[in-house]
Simulated assay, not measured.
Amino acid sequence: MIKWAIALGEFDISYQPKLTEKGQAVTDFITKFTYHIDIALILKALASLPSEARKVEPTFLVWTLYVDGSFNQSGCGAGLVLTTQNKVAMKYAFYFKFKASNNEVECEALRAGLRLAIHLGVKQLDIFSNSQLVVNQVTNNFDAKDNFMAVYLTQAQLLLKHFHYQITQVP
């Protein structure tokens, strides 16, 4: 870097290295500029389609849910991607107007994704999260020692009773 700064200095050009974009900045951008979408309107639009376009196969195909939470000094938020069995991805980002720990935000993201999946009538779900704590608490490998996390975990487990599911931790 210094070598380039000296070489460019002869021509009165200063070198400014481009800073890397942190993942948190991208998450903050998504949560700040994501707008509310009313799922009821989407379902109403689907109901207006011709009956042959709405036919649903009786077999329960697997949907995929990816969840992630984000926490920093300015606030917290979450993102989720729910993918249908036909590989149609529904992407959502949430900004929470309350303070929470990183683990609580991760569990809140899971709960939001599960509520959406229930609303859409999903029966089989593969869930992916990068939170080691949340995944291991859901699979009963870890106990919830914090009172808030115990409440979040209980609520998540009640929602999970609606599904045949598999949950996996991803890096």
Rank of each mutant, 00 (worst) to 15 (best):
P17V: 04
T20W: 06
T20I: 05
K22A: 10
K22S: 15
G23L: 15
Q24T: 12
V26M: 10
V26Y: 08
F29C: 10
T31I: 06
Y35T: 08
L41N: 13
L43C: 12
K44H: 09
K44A: 08
A45G: 11
S51G: 06
E52S: 13
A53S: 14
K55N: 09
K55V: 15
P58M: 04
F60H: 14
L65Q: 04
L65D: 01
V67G: 01
D68E: 12
D68Q: 08
D68P: 02
G77Y: 01
G79T: 01
V81F: 03
Q85H: 10
N86A: 12
M90D: 00
Y92R: 05
Y95W: 06
K97Y: 13
V105D: 01
E106F: 05
E106P: 08
C107I: 12
L110W: 04
L110P: 01
A112K: 02
L114C: 02
R115K: 15
L116Y: 01
A117F: 05
K123M: 12
K123I: 11
Q124A: 13
Q124D: 12
F128P: 00
N130I: 07
V134M: 15
Q137T: 04
F142T: 12
D143G: 03
A144F: 04
K145A: 07
D146F: 03
F148C: 04
M149N: 04
M149H: 00
V151N: 07
L153Y: 08
Q155N: 10
Q155L: 13
L158T: 06
